[in-house]
Nucleic acid binder design. Structure first.
Lengths: 218, 218
DNA sequence: TAGATTGTTAATCGATTAACAATC
DNA sequence: TAGATTGTTAATCGATTAACAATC
């Protein structure tokens, strides 16, 4: 099952951004756009846009540019957004509940089937009609309801254990909000959102100038 | 104010990860570590670790390795985590409240001074002793309370307007959770967490094999 | 057809890895 | 001292940008 074409993560991470900008253009009634016009809007080079798109196919037309709707639809498909995905949230604390309450993901085909928690006060409650279940029922639930994506909003201490249990049950993708890197087999996807890591780059950058002034002085 | 040493974002984004791993080692009572041992734990090359650290200074010792506590403390300072930062959250919906409720950031020196919202039902409520204020009071509040970091958990339609208002009041850093790229002057920092972008890389990867099977067939 | 803009190859740039002399 | 491991230079790799022939 070897792939001839291997797309780099650098390109993959730019795809959702193209999708966003094309969606906005579509909403604004723009029907065609050249790589140069798009490059100005997005603050990247036209060359990069053409290279990126061409790793998936020739979506443009010489002398014309790209048809906004066609390209938008193509990227929608490339991102797998024409399908639906069943998901669960493990950890029904503040962040887990916030994600469950956000309806945007549902509209893109990401369906939430259940939340799980250890806290008896939370078990049995519902968030937008989705029930919070006892985490002891995790394996049982996943056996009966095939799950594509598990969203982890649990303390870092419990993350690896939950991942192991879900991998054993065949879950192939994790959206991890725990502040820890979890280990999975090669065929399992982990996308981590490390919020503190992100925040700490802000404090770094707020102090960068001062930092190098100090280093220089020594 | 030109810097001689310019650290690439690639390196900056790895710093919090080093910090996390060293914190764990410290907690486990490990006192020294070589770049090779650390590289095994983190799944990166020892060479990269040494290169990264050396862009800030010589923290190691030949024949010995790195003192875990010293290196951890050094990276804590590099990340600016020995200081405190005053922050506000604009948008007190699910995500804004989840961030306000999370005490972890506070313990790293990120102090929350206020939340802001347009919703009259939310205004006046308190989250962990921090009040939700009318967003009309934004400029007034920021004038009286110097703010280092503004956290944006508002709908994308309102993000640029709020950023402009806060930049005008001198706010120099934004942690942006809105699904839009906001424009700021060169001396202002924006760190965006695009949750849907992150999620869409999962659906992409879940479908990548199939995608290239299709492209090949054509 | 003439003009515009893609698709794609070639050149450049930057980041990562390898190698090893310096040194603890 | 001998062994280990850093700090740093050089080599490699991959990603980005430039250039232009193909073509709509």
């Amino acid at each position: 099952m070897a792939k001839e074409t291997k797309i780099s993560m650098a390109i993959i991470r730019r795809l959702p951004r193209y999708h966003r900008y094309l969606g906005e253009l579509l909403n604004s009634g723009v029907t065609r756009i050249s790589s140069q016009e798009l490059s100005k809007k997005m603050g990247v080079t036209a060359s990069q846009i053409r290279q990126d798109l061409n790793s998936f196919g020739g979506f443009g037309q010489q002398g014309y540019g790209y048809n906004v709707k066609d390209l938008y639809d193509a990227i929608t498909k490339i991102l797998g957004l024409e399908k639906t995905y069943n998901s669960i949230i493990v950890g029904a604390g503040n962040l887990g509940q916030a994600i469950a309450n956000y309806t945007g993901f549902q509209s893109w085909g990401f369906k939430l089937k259940a939340l799980f928690d250890v806290n008896p006060k939370l078990i049995g409650l519902k968030i937008r009609d989705v029930e919070i279940l006892d985490v002891d029922l995790l394996e049982d639930f996943v056996s009966k309801n095939p799950i594509d994506i598990a969203i982890l909003t649990i303390p870092k201490e419990r993350a690896q254990e939950i991942v192991d249990r879900l991998v054993a049950k065949g879950v192939k993708a994790f959206w991890n909000f725990s502040a820890v890197d979890v280990n999975v087999p090669d065929d399992v996807i982990v996308e981590s959102v490390h919020l503190s890591d992100s925040l700490f780059t802000i404090s770094y950058r707020l102090n960068e100038d001062e930092l190098f002034k100090k280093i220089k002085e020594k």
